[in-house]
Write a protein that binds this DNA or RNA. Structure first.
Lengths: 255, 255
DNA sequence: CGCCTGTTTGATCTACCTCAACTGCTGTGG
DNA sequence: CCACAGCAGTTGAGGTAGATCAAACAGGCG
């Protein structure tokens, strides 16, 4: 809103990597204390509002970085406006392509987001100097590739019902994992996405997403106490509905 | 067919890396001659028939490796048999997940395939020892991730017509790139996939694929001289139809 | 209170699927 | 050399999941 020189939302050098909440999951999690000094010096934090564009498709990417908090969506567009989400990033996930100057997608904050960023050129130097940084980035990229392939199965072959079940299951797994709990009947899950965002994620329309929500609710699988909250009445049924792709009985509280 | 001890189709140590057809594009392309000696010693070739399974989803993966020649499809399945292709690999592409013991998909040869393989455990050692190997693998993985995101847009949001156009365009780009030619009207493209394989790739049925082929043909965009060959009467129109995702005017012979 | 935005619900439409029959290769055996 | 399986592909007829268009509804917020 203010037309003065540089962007005002930079907060630099105040926080140290050592106390960082994503220290042991992010791209830097394999880095030694010595390596961390260099990262610490090069990093800068930046905050984004919900809806704010972080990078734009086809634009030169000046920086790369990790999501410290909040949720980021990656979108690809067709000229006529059709939109597909191609990635959903949470705390500790990495955004940006070293060795590639143009972004292949839009990245948009869908909640308030804090990022830990590096100038791309500088990060590439760090990457060349640090074995552990590169190793961790490789691992994370391989994981993302697996996830995006699982999502291709969903987009290409699942029904609307199965799609929504898979989505809710993914959210539930995340929250269960964060609290180190198994999923259990009655558990509450925070859903940070709007119907529109979910629709873009699943390759559906908002109306279809809404109808599937009400179906699952009327069948007693879910409760919807508020717009952002979902209660899983019957996680096992949800897993059955999702169609098993990434089914993993072990994360269900079975005892 | 033969119940004797070990698989008979191993051909070992006969060829040297130096003369390898994928030497400068594969995962080893950044490796120095010195590093190549170790790779050379560890590698073994293996051939697959069309239709033969290379790895099975959920099975332990004993090996990783590069496609030397032929085409490999990666599939994911739902229990009821619905099937989605999640990757299509050509010469120099890499199969396998270092640091992961279970395969997240089926890999199937769809033409005669020769692979250059490594025991997974041994490859992980090589990867830990070789900076250039790891760097190249990271690059290739990032490229695959980009490709799979582009494919998510196709699966989630494109029409059958746009899907087929995108598929043909991808084939055309590949053959144009191999010959170092731009795409031009009248160019012939080899299509190694059956209608069924194409359908699994695009998230469609064989009937819909077939109908879209005949539509494009009757509109003068394509000729279909045989089952395996496609002639592009109007590549520019094909690009328009594909919807621009990976549109790159530069690869069209415009002059 | 009344607006604005996100969501739900309803009615219809359509792209693609499903089921089914037919065509045309390609190979094999009489 | 022809007959005729056998299979991939095409074509047709009809059904349906999800899209589209439209209206009502709910909750925040000035």
């Amino acid at each position: 809103m203010n037309a003065l020189a540089t962007p005002p939302d930079l907060t630099e050098g105040l926080d140290k990597c050592s106390g960082c909440p994503i220290r042991n999951r992010a791209v830097c999690s394999y880095s030694s204390p010595a390596e961390l000094v260099a990262l610490d010096a090069a990093k800068f934090y930046r905050d984004y509002e919900p809806g704010q564009e972080i990078v734009g498709e086809g634009q030169p990417t000046a920086f790369v970085g990790s999501v410290v908090s909040g949720v980021v969506a990656l979108y690809k567009l067709l000229e006529d406006g059709r939109r597909q989400m191609v990635g959903l990033l949470f705390a500790s996930d990495f955004i940006g392509r070293p060795m590639r100057s143009l972004a292949p997608f839009d990245a948009v904050a869908i909640t308030p987001v804090r990022m830990c960023q590096f100038k791309r050129s500088q990060f590439e130097v760090l990457l060349a100097e640090s074995r552990s940084l590169e190793r961790r980035l490789l691992e994370m990229t391989l994981d993302e590739l697996d996830a995006s392939r699982a999502w291709m199965l969903l987009l290409g072959r699942k029904t609307a019902r199965e799609k929504l079940a898979s989505f809710l299951l993914m959210l539930a797994r995340r929250t269960a994992a964060l609290g180190n709990n198994p999923m259990r009947p009655g558990m509450q899950v925070q859903n940070p996405l709007t119907r529109e965002t979910i629709a873009d994620f699943l390759g559906l329309t908002i109306e279809t997403v809404s109808r599937q929500f009400t179906n699952l609710k009327s069948e007693g699988v879910l409760d919807l106490p508020s717009r952002q909250d979902v209660i899983l009445r019957d996680p096992a049924e949800l897993m059955r509905l999702a169609g098993e792709d990434d089914l993993d009985e072990s994360d269900l509280a079975s005892a």
